[in-house]
Design a protein around this nucleic acid. Structure first.
Length: 517
RNA sequence: UGGGGCGUCGCCAAGUGGCAAGGCAGCGGGUUUUGAUCCCGCCAUUCGGAGGUUCGAAUCCUCCCGCCCCAGCCA
């Protein structure tokens, strides 16, 4: 169930870079900030980065972009690693951390100050915003822009020593306050944060911004293609500015692709958190969530998620993939990998009036693949079928059990319903049926083959169980566009059926997969 | 109305001047001990629109239209 790598602009570009010997071997990276759980959108990025490395015989690093301690934690570092491994990928070497490069980044910041390309600015956040200008008007130079190299060096060193309060000063690059690209209007390189960092503790009172860190991290690690999402496109000139003006050991290249959106779900961290906080779902690994942990609990195979990411393609146009594509990939994989079992949701007792002895059946675990083997199931005179699988009378379209008609019990005999009992409300409480075959799997001798096959469980062996049926969390295709997210929640996304009866072998099942009626 | 991007079938998406792949969804039909699977067939004279260049354009040029991103000391 693998998918042939399809042509896309990334593969075309990398192929060209390899052929022109611009790079000798591909090195990519998946660089999450450890500030939340991974979701389907991350799976796409993981698939792109690790997949490309795999295809071109290169390497992919896992790097935590941990430049903002206030939002991050070890819990996320652990869960992210678990999710990447579960998806089936292995990063090259040890896990990397942006924080491991803090010393180098600090030295490079000093280097820029020496080059008169960076300065310490004392403007408050509000003032800086005012000086920055707007989308249509240029900004104004900070009054601290021409501060001497010595003074900036001294101030920056003291920022690093923890001498100043948060927000008191920042280090900025000296580029162009009139640039049409806002990112070039003297961007902030370092800010003061008196926070404890999960990796470096209280060693650093200042932290580099994403812009000042990312390209340099890529350069340090020898990343050849730094693949990110479209919203960073405007940052590329800045990314290149740092790589160009700093004595970095390598020249990485940033390429952007469109992030993955999937219909009927959301991947916004803020909105996912809202669902968890307001208990619309039960935790970050709720099977209705598009988090990797949720998808895993839902029984989605990692291979199916990879398949979906490949099949949906990689381009630069904003799009929303139909969740049906994901579901199709999941069905494809499950169809091949899931052993089959039986259960009934709403049990209806069936008594076989002419069954001489309890039969011991050998039932196959997969309809097409013999390698799945079989299991033993006993079929006595008392069994349960699903209430929905029986009607006193029905038209041609109903292929299940009807009074006076036949049906095959999956893996067992063909039976014919003779009569049924009903309660005061007229609800059928029990069906009396007759076996019209005596050999499992055989067709009736009179040639009247049943039209349908239904699930059943033996009354002796069946085990009561609670079944949770999950459906799409939202009732609209693009919940992210809804003004009122909560109003778009599908009220029937979780249906708990506590009357179910399952075959005995299912008791200790993990999120493997059975098949229901 | 500043800058940067994107517009190919209902949803994704290949295609990079030579005559519109594929997947998902949908619709017919067949097989079937899961109304599943599987199999067969159908599904863009047309590529946001209008001009132009060319023997020839989704691909090149011009203008227009629509959508997305950017004014965090977030990433």
């Amino acid at each position: 169930m693998s998918v042939e790598p399809r042509s896309n602009f990334l593969r075309t570009q990398i192929q060209a870079d390899l052929e022109s010997a611009r790079v000798s071997a591909l090195v990519t990276r998946f660089p999450p900030e450890p500030n939340g759980y991974l979701h389907l959108g991350h799976a796409k990025s993981i698939s792109v980065n690790f997949g490309l490395a795999e295809q071109f015989g290169g390497h992919c690093h896992l790097r935590f972009d941990d430049t903002n301690p206030e939002k991050e934690s070890q819990e996320f570092i652990d869960s992210i690693q678990e999710d990447v491994r579960w998806l089936g990928y292995q990063w090259q070497g040890e896990v990397r951390y942006a924080s491991a490069y803090f010393n180098q980044l600090y030295e490079w910041a000093m280097y820029l100050i020496d080059q008169r390309l960076a300065y310490v600015c004392d403007l408050s956040a509000e003032e800086a915003r005012d000086y920055r200008g707007t989308l249509t008007e240029p900004g104004r130079n900070s009054p601290f822009r021409e501060r001497s190299v010595d003074e900036s060096r001294d101030l920056f060193a003291r920022m690093r020593q923890g001498e100043f309060a948060e927000g008191a000063r920042v280090l900025r690059a000296k580029i162009d306050m009139g640039a049409a690209n806002m990112n070039l209007r003297d961007p902030i390189l370092y800010r003061i944060r008196h926070a404890s960092h999960h990796q470096t503790g209280t060693e650093w009172p200042i932290y580099p911004t994403y812009d000042f860190a990312h390209g340099q991290e890529d350069a340090i690690e020898g990343i050849t293609h730094s693949i990110c999402t479209l919203e960073f496109e405007d940052h590329r000139p800045l990314y290149e500015w740092f790589v160009e003006h700093l004595p970095v050991p390598h020249t990485p290249r940033q390429i952007e692709f469109a992030r993955l959106n999937t219909s009927y779900t959301i991947t916004s961290k803020r909105k996912l958190k809202q669902l968890v906080d307001e208990e619309v779902v039960i935790g970050w690994d709720d099977p209705r969530l598009p988090t990797i942990a949720g998808l895993r609990r839902r029984g989605y195979p990692a291979a199916a998620i990879r398949h979906f990411c490949e099949e949906v393609g990689t381009s630069r146009s904003d799009s929303t993939a139909d969740v049906a594509m994901l579901e199709s990939a999941v069905r494809d994989h499950l169809n091949q990998s899931a052993p089959r079992r039986m259960c009934v949701m709403k049990p209806l007792r069936v008594t076989l009036t002419n069954l001489p002895d309890t039969l011991l059946l050998d039932v196959r675990n997969h309809p097409a693949d013999l390698d799945f083997g079989s299991r033993q199931l006993s079929m006595g005179a008392e069994l349960f079928i699903d209430q929905d699988d029986f009607r006193e009378e029905a038209n041609k379209h109903f292929k299940r059990l009807v009074l006076g008609k036949r049906v095959r019990l999956r893996g067992g005999l063909v039976i014919e319903a003779d009569r049924c009992d009903k309660d005061a409300e007229g609800e059928v409480t029990q069906v009396f049926a007759r076996c019209v075959t005596s050999v499992p799997g055989a067709d009736p001798e009179d040639g009247l083959k049943p039209k349908g096959v239904i699930h059943w469980v033996s009354a002796d062996e069946a085990v009561p169980a609670t079944i949770r049926r999950y459906d799409r969390l939202f009732g609209v295709p693009e919940p992210a566009r809804e003004q009122d997210l909560m109003a778009a929640v599908n009220p029937h996304s979780l249906i708990v059926i506590d009357t179910a009866m399952i075959e005995p072998g299912l008791v200790n099942a993990t999120p493997e997969a059975g098949v229901s009626v």
